[in-house]
Write a protein that binds this DNA or RNA. Structure first.
Lengths: 276, 276
DNA sequence: GGAGCGCTGTATTTTATGTTACGTATTTTG
DNA sequence: CAAAATACGTAACATAAAATACAGCGCTCC
């Protein structure tokens, strides 16, 4: 069975004429980058003419060059999403049970999630949450609402006016009245994205509320309205998606907000410490 | 110093207008693939128009779109050639901001937690939860109750008689009447351990309820009454303890229970799948 | 509440990319 | 050794993509 284009090529490279073989070798040499460039660039890199490149991809079974490129991109996407550590990390020892694959995937997800997340971005969001110009609302979807609760439970201690929106849709929809452009709304939404949340986000956005969105890598439609978007990896070998990466981001953010408030010498924090 | 385009983006994302920010977020969400596609594809993915994409790349300092794509390709080429660099976030090398110590500590916590947790132990707990002799109750403390909710939300789908105990102490204390030796009580309790939870656990234990305890490495006093104890690492460089390791164990357990029920060919699972 | 500025999308133009047709070179076979 | 078939490149063509011009809208700041 042939699963990658590289395999396909090495499978057929024997039956190719000289020019196309040079194309194949050039592509394999630094795969798959050459294939993502234009036909002209590919051809000069291989030292052949453009039609030869086209005949080459035709021989591989593709209808046209763009189709070939799409296939390469899809392959690359799959590769980038499940990074190297799974294959080269010998961290999964004897065990082999059902645990380690799950753990490994989760660890990968976290590394990948943070790789796409800069310190500055997190600091910006933390600042927004810490500056306390208005109120902070948190809400989540069916499975992610606990994350909203978790974050709310912490934030509510270190600052006032933090509200978790719970219960039925009609209840939190009415809270829109309290929201304005000085307020922040933190939404957790991973697929399948919930219609009710999208509607709610849209209305809040219209009222000028700043939205911070926690979502998965495919981005909830709410991203359209969000001021800040955090995209976490969710894929694990399970029937369910994993929210663990988002959970860790949430904890990191909680820590960052706390630190900022401490640095600002917020009275509330001092009061709090004296209480402990 | 800015070495990657992703950094460049997160550096300037704050100063961008809404549309371009959406473009930036879309690109970061699955970097760098979206940037390798055509302007039209990029624009629809981000939900903006093509000129906005072009203005976006112009703002990043590129003369035109192809130049931007070449830069992305070069970056990708460098990454693919030295796979080691891919696992680490180049944005936060040594020292850096507050992100990576937090992440590193969290990852360590998870590895440590699972190191002290055998496959068999997890499988036993999963079996206990899956065998469905009685009811399943879940409850947590001040900060960990969201974890109980998260687990309950999943378990309640794949099996009946799953209850999350919420609200005031008096409410769930009364639920003790419903509990017997065929039932399972899942408790999340990390320090500072809550008196009310300990009392509740003791009473449940006296009634013969099987207790599964999620706690920290110093073990809640509830461990005395528990049939199964999961001790997660919680130490992170933050003012707060981290529940992330326990969260991942919970997810692992949810996955294991689901798998067992699938393997047992539970009718409910089949019904569920037909609903999807 | 009004004027000015800036951002965004639609429509059009321009550029360059992929594709095809055809003639020449090269290799293979009888 | 000759003839045929196959492979390859040059050059013209068509198509799709990027770039630009312009108008409408929303926003901010007086």
């Amino acid at each position: 069975m042939i699963s990658s284009i590289a395999e396909l090529i090495s499978d057929r490279i024997g039956t190719m004429p000289a020019g196309e073989r040079r194309a194949a070798q050039t592509l394999i040499a630094n795969y798959p980058l050459t294939g993502l460039k234009t036909v002209a660039e590919f051809s000069t890199a291989a030292g052949v003419s453009s039609p030869t490149i086209l005949r080459f991809v035709a021989r591989l079974g593709f209808q046209n060059y763009p189709e070939f490129q799409s296939a390469l991109q899809d392959e690359l996407a799959a590769q980038l999403q499940s990074p190297a550590s799974r294959t080269l990390n010998p961290a999964s020892p004897a065990g082999g049970g059902a645990v380690s694959p799950m753990l490994e995937a989760t660890l990968d997800n976290m590394r990948e999630t943070f790789r796409h997340l800069s310190d500055k971005q997190l600091a910006d969001i933390a600042t927004r949450l810490a500056e306390r110009r208005g109120k902070t609302f948190l809400i989540g979807g069916r499975f992610t609402d606990p994350l909203a609760r978790y974050m709310a439970a912490h934030l509510a201690i270190i600052q006032p006016d933090v509200y978790h929106l719970a219960g039925q849709e009609s209840i939190w929809r009415d809270r829109l009245i309290d929201m304005g452009k000085r307020d922040v709304l933190v939404i957790f939404d991973i697929r399948r994205y919930q219609e009710s949340l999208v509607r709610f986000a849209e209305k809040a956005h219209q009222r000028g509320v700043q939205i911070v969105l926690f979502t998965d890598q495919w981005l909830s439609p709410i991203a359209r309205f969000a001021r800040h978007v955090i995209a976490g990896r969710t894929a694990v070998p399970s029937a369910w998606d994993s929210s663990a990466a988002l959970f860790v981001v949430a904890e990191t953010l909680i820590g960052a907000v706390t630190r900022q408030l401490e640095a600002a010498g917020a009275k509330r924090i001092r009061d709090l410490e004296s209480l402990r």
